[in-house]
C-alpha cells in the first residue's frame, strides 16, 4: 500500500491566472480517507489558498460535489482507496462557470429552481384552526424519493444536454417539481406544467440517464422526467387533440 497519493487539483485564481491551471499536491494515503479529507489536508497543511465548498462530511449537505477523475461525485463519499492508483484529478463540476478553484456559480440553477415553484402551492390556505394538512403513508411514499434531493448539482454536471443547451431547466429542478406535483397537499400542478411543458423544460431531455446514475441519494431524476413527459403528453392530448379540451 502506498504511503502517499498525488492529487492534481484544478486551480483558478482570477487575480493570478487568466484560465484554469493544474497544481499537484502529495498527501498521505490513508484507507479511511475520502477525497474531501485529502483536500482538507492540503488546505490545513500544504496550501491554505485552495478554495472549495464543503460542510457536513456525510453526504447530506450536497456542497462538496466535484469531478474526481472526470466523474461527478460527492468528495465526502468517495474513498481514496476506491480510486485507481496513480494521481487523482480533482476539478470543479462540469457545466458551470467557475468562480475560484473548485467553487462554481450556482446562480443559473437557483433561477431555474424558482421557476418550478418548489414549494406547496395552495389556492387557498385552510385556517390554522382547522389543523394540519394530513397525509397517509402512501401519499408520502408518492413523492418521498424526489424529496431526497440535496441540490448537489452532480446531475447537472453529468447531463450532456445541460452542457449543450444551457437553457434546459435540468434534472434536479424537474425532480423537485415532481416532488411537489405528487404531494397530496399541493395545488400547483398546472402552473408547473406551463413552465415544464416547454422545450427548455422536459422536452430538451433525451433520456441519457446519467443524472440518475450519478445521483448520490437515488432520487432518479431521469424517471421523474420520463414520468412528467407522460403527464405532459396526456395534458397535450386533452388540450390539443380532443375537441372538448380545456383550451
Amino acid at each position: 500500500m502506498p504511503d502517499t497519493v498525488t492529487l492534481e487539483v484544478q486551480r483558478y485564481r482570477p487575480e493570478e491566472e487568466t484560465g484554469p491551471a493544474w497544481q499537484r499536491y502529495e498527501v498521505p494515503f490513508r484507507p479511511e480517507w475520502m477525497v474531501l479529507d485529502a483536500l482538507n489536508y492540503i488546505k490545513d497543511h500544504l496550501d491554505g489558498t485552495l478554495s472549495y465548498r464543503w460542510a457536513c462530511r456525510m453526504g447530506v449537505c450536497g456542497s462538496c460535489g466535484m469531478l474526481v477523475n472526470g466523474e461527478p461525485v460527492l468528495t465526502c463519499a468517495t474513498y481514496l482507496e476506491e480510486l485507481p492508483h496513480g494521481s487523482i484529478r480533482v476539478e470543479p463540476l462540469r457545466g458551470f462557470p467557475v468562480i475560484r478553484d473548485l467553487i462554481f456559480d450556482l446562480t443559473d440553477f437557483l433561477n431555474k429552481l424558482k421557476r418550478v415553484s418548489p414549494w406547496l402551492v395552495r389556492k387557498k390556505e385552510q385556517p390554522v384552526a382547522d389543523g394540519e394538512y394530513r397525509q397517509t403513508p402512501d401519499q408520502l411514499a408518492e413523492y418521498k424519493q424526489y424529496s431526497m434531493c440535496i441540490n448537489c448539482m452532480l446531475c447537472y454536471s453529468a447531463c450532456p444536454i445541460y452542457e449543450l443547451e444551457p437553457e434546459f431547466i435540468g434534472p434536479a429542478a424537474i425532480a423537485l417539481a415532481q416532488r411537489y406535483n405528487h404531494d397530496s397537499r399541493d395545488e400547483g400542478v398546472q402552473a408547473r406544467m406551463d413552465v415544464l411543458s416547454q422545450h427548455d423544460g422536459i422536452w430538451a431531455c433525451t433520456f441519457v440517464g446519467e443524472c440518475s446514475a450519478v445521483c448520490p441519494t437515488n432520487v432518479d431524476p431521469a424517471a421523474a422526467i420520463q414520468r412528467y413527459k407522460l403527464s405532459a403528453t396526456l395534458d397535450w392530448v386533452k388540450s390539443t387533440v380532443l375537441p372538448w379540451g380545456k383550451r
Partner: peptide, 15 residues
C-alpha cells in the same frame, strides 16, 4: 404561452 409540439412526437416515439 407557446406550447411545445414535442408531446405528439414523443408519444409516437415512446409507443
Amino acid at each position: 404561452m407557446r406550447r411545445s409540439q414535442e408531446p405528439g412526437l414523443w408519444a409516437l416515439f415512446s409507443a
